[in-house]
Design a protein around this nucleic acid. Structure first.
Lengths: 222, 222
DNA sequence: TTATATTTTTAGATTTGTCTAAATTATATT
DNA sequence: AATATAATTTAGACAAATCTAAAAATATAA
């Protein structure tokens, strides 16, 4: 089953809304989609026709299993492309959303699978949101910043906040980027700075300011 | 000025046709676009309205300078994405066209520029077709296969024909891919095989069969 | 050069996704 | 429970991109 760009956008929005509220209503979806309630009703009929939606007139609606799978396919593509844009094209993480909104509608399944492999099958996008696998499964792993994490544990970098040019320059120098495996060796009480072992690289020292913006997850739990 | 997907597709087709024939006519464009002549006429009016086309009713038509620039922007995106798909996602070159047909319509200029840089500003796509730069300029450089090329010249791999799994496996082993710099050191008369210096790698020996499928250009001429 | 064939355009319809305005249903309030 | 308010849907219209069928212009050929 394949969907139009517009259908995919509606499906994705409904998915995100129903994560929060269970049942979704016409007006809030219209607001999210920046369109009119009447347009939403039109699309709901189409999605119900394609058997993606539980929907009774005037009653509210939500995606059924097929609908959720369709939504997760789009979310997966969106987040993989965001990862690519940040990690390989060196976009700042706060600039990539609108571009990924276009890329997420490219249809080739083989493309998505190859992209996933090329990126190293990341679990999180650069905002720290989880990337569903090709079956729609989301691996839930706790993320913490480097200040919160125990010493000598094998960790993988999942996201980086505060992406200033200066911060990115520093991380690049230490060979720290998304997916990098590392370990906190020591925390200095004096200034809160950390001694970090970047696997396959040299040890380095980072300040507390940096550490609080670098988020990681426990490699074992994957 | 920005264009719809449909407009971009028409512009690109007209560009390719007028490269061959000068003036383009309605029927041949309809055939190329797999559509009806009536639809072509409709679109021609739109493109004339946007001042991209020299077009008089019943007379034939061609892109003006603005139209050619628009076409080259699309061609540039198409070929950069093809390069990415082959070189980084390891698609075979004969599989990438339909996917690049979708990717070429992603609109962000910054994306294209960053992609170009990420790829190393390649001059040719994996089919050996030249990639226009951001101003629409096409660098014309002669490509030859490795059998046609003089010894001890600094060369860069521009395209590879006969992309069988076996061939690709062999090239990968020798670290030869698009953009790789190399030099032919010696040609053995006995079996036509070549001794190749892959810059930053070891020397290797490739057979005549392989050599005739590997196309290169002279780095000096860039 | 007149008739015939070919090419191109027009006229009007269709589909998708949107809109406004009005009607309908549900919810809240007294 | 009746009424006011809010949410939702319907009805009908529009723009983009396409189509078919017919008309108009051009090209070709006897």
């Amino acid at each position: 089953m394949s969907f139009t760009k517009s259908e995919e956008n509606y499906i994705k929005r409904i998915y995100h809304l129903q994560q929060d509220t269970g049942l979704v209503n016409t007006n809030s979806l219209a607001a999210e989609m920046q369109t009119r309630p009447a347009s939403v009703t039109d699309m709901l009929k189409k999605l119900k026709g394609k058997k993606l939606l539980q929907y009774e007139k005037y009653k509210g609606f939500k995606l059924n299993e097929a609908g959720k799978k369709a939504a997760l396919d789009v979310v997966r593509k969106h987040r993989l492309w965001e990862y690519f844009l940040v990690e390989h094209l060196k976009f700042n993480w706060d600039k990539v959303h609108p571009i990924a909104e276009e890329l997420e509608h490219i249809s080739s399944e083989e493309l998505v699978q190859r992209l996933d492999n090329f990126l190293g099958n990341p679990l999180f996008d650069p905002h720290g949101d989880p990337i569903p696998d090709k079956n729609g499964k989301i691996t839930v792993v706790k993320q913490q910043n480097l200040l919160q994490v125990p010493l000598k544990k094998n960790l993988s970098v999942s996201s980086v906040t505060n992406q200033t040019a200066q911060m990115l320059d520093m991380l690049r120098h230490y060979h720290i980027s998304l997916g990098t495996q590392l370990m906190v060796l020591k925390r200095f009480e004096f200034d809160g700075s950390l001694e970090i072992k970047v696997i396959k690289q040299n040890t380095c020292i980072i300040s507390e300011q940096v550490a609080k913006n670098v988020f990681v997850y426990d490699v074992q739990e994957k």
